[in-house]
């Protein structure tokens, strides 16, 4: 059984995790074109080598980021998303 080190829960069997896609910068959903948004939502780069990916620890519903080598399938490191994302993104204005 492969082991992934969850930043919140520590080492766990890989069966406790779900893959969440590549980490990509989100275009501004208000001003970007439809093509840009579709590229962000649906398309993957899928490179051979080091990638940054979203992973979910299912038992705690905790999302984190893993850096993985897609050639060797080796997980280099994992860390909480707060290391990349410092600000909360608001998609809609507060309803009064």
């Amino acid at each position: 059984m492969k082991i992934i080190h969850c930043p919140l829960n520590g080492p766990r069997n890989i069966s406790e995790f779900a893959y969440g896609g590549e980490v990509e910068a989100m275009p501004d959903p208000v001003s970007c074109s439809g093509d840009e948004w579709a590229e962000y939502i649906f398309m993957s780069d899928n490179p051979a080598g080091l990638v940054r990916e979203w992973w979910l620890h299912v038992a705690t519903a905790y999302w984190f980021i893993a850096e993985r080598n897609t050639v060797t399938d080796e997980i280099i490191k994992t860390y909480p998303p707060s290391e990349l994302y410092k600000q909360r993104i608001e998609f809609a204005k507060d309803i009064d």
Binding site: N9, N13, S15, E16, H57, V58, A59
Partner: peptide, 8 residues
């Protein structure tokens, strides 16, 4: 927080 008898 983990899997116990295959449930969370």
């Amino acid at each position: 927080q983990t899997s116990i008898a295959r449930i969370n």
